[in-house]
Design a protein around this nucleic acid. Structure first.
Lengths: 153, 153
DNA sequence: GGTTGACCTTAACCTTTGTTGAGGTTCTAG
DNA sequence: CTAGAACCTCAACAAAGGTTAAGGTCAACC
C-alpha cells in the first residue's frame, strides 16, 4: 500500500468523486461537457490528473454563486490544460466571479428592501410599485413601463 | 366601449398576459400548475377574476427571490380562493419570503467574503478551506467533514 | 479461479419553467 | 357576413444539470 509512487498521481473516477463529494455520474457528466478531462488505462478506465480536484473545487464554488456550467467551462478553458491551476489562475477566476456575486447580492438586497417597504403600503395594488420593475426588464412599452396594473381605476 | 360594467371584471388570457408582462403560454402554464384559476365562457375561453393579477404579481416577485413555483403555489393555496388577496395576505407571504431572501443573501455574502479571503491564500489547496464546506451539506463523514482534499498527503 | 466491487457505454429518464407548433374554434370589427 | 385576431387543446421540444438502468468488462482479493 505504501510506495505506489507515480501511479498514485492518477485518480480513478470513484476516488475523484468521493474526494469531491459528488457522484460518479456527475464526474462523467462534467467530462462529457468538457469541464474536465482524463486519460485512459489499457482497460479503458478513466484516470484523472490530480489537477482535476482543484478544477472540481472551482466548479463547485462557482456553482454556489449561481454561475451556469457553460460559463464555468468557458472560464476553465482559459486555464492551462492538464495541469493543476495555479493560485494566480484561481485569483483571476474568483475575482471575476466575485463581481457576479456582488451583483446578485445587490439585486437580492434591493428586492428585499423593496419587499419590506411594500409590506406596509399595500403597494401591490399600485401600478407604480417599485417591485414591479425594480431594475431590469421591460424596455419601455407604455408610460412608466409598468409590468402590472392591478386596479382597474 | 364604455359601460361594460360587470363584464369588465373578467379578463381574457391575453389581457392578463399583457397586463402582467408575461406570455399567454405562461398564464396557461401557471393555470395548469394550479397557481391560478379561471372560469370559462360558453365558447370555452378563459376568463380571469381580477384577483389573478395580484396573484401573478406575487408569483413574479417570489420568483425573483428564487422561490420555486411549487412553493409559491403552496403558499398561494393558503390564500382565499377566487378573491383578490388582501394586503394582509401579501404581508404574510412577503415577510416569510423575505426571510428566505435574507438567508440567501447571507449565504451569498459569506461565499463572497470567503472567496475574497481565499484569493490571497492559495486556500483551494488546503483541505480546511472554508469554501469547501462553508455552512451546509455533508453531515460528518470523516474528520472535518471536508468536501475536498486537493493534496495527497 | 471465482466472486465481488468498481468501471465502461449508451440511452432513457427526471425536474423546472416554460415555448412552439399543429389543427381547429370563437370573437369582434367592418 | 366574413376576415382576421385571439382563443382552444394537445403534444413536442428546449436547456440545465444531472441520475438511473441495462448490459457488459476489469481488477483485486482470497
Amino acid at each position: 500500500m505504501a510506495e505506489k509512487g507515480a501511479l498514485q498521481r492518477y485518480l480513478s473516477v470513484g476516488e475523484v468523486a468521493k474526494r469531491c463529494g459528488i457522484a460518479v455520474s456527475a464526474v462523467h457528466f462534467y467530462e462529457r461537457k468538457g469541464l474536465i478531462s482524463s486519460i485512459r488505462t489499457d482497460g479503458n478506465q478513466r484516470r484523472f490528473h490530480r489537477g482535476v480536484l482543484r478544477k472540481l473545487a472551482i466548479i463547485k464554488v462557482a456553482q454556489k454563486t449561481g454561475i451556469p456550467l457553460s460559463e464555468i467551462g468557458a472560464a476553465l478553458d482559459k486555464l492551462p490544460r492538464n495541469t493543476v491551476p495555479t493560485v494566480k489562475d484561481w485569483e483571476h477566476l474568483s475575482s471575476q466571479w466575485r463581481d457576479d456575486l456582488n451583483e446578485r447580492i445587490d439585486q437580492l438586497t434591493r428586492l428585499r428592501d423593496q419587499l419590506g417597504q411594500c409590506i406596509g403600503c399595500g403597494c401591490l395594488s399600485i401600478s407604480a410599485c417599485p417591485l414591479y420593475n425594480p431594475n431590469d426588464a421591460l424596455g419601455g412599452d407604455g408610460p412608466g413601463a409598468r409590468l402590472l396594473e392591478l386596479e382597474d381605476e
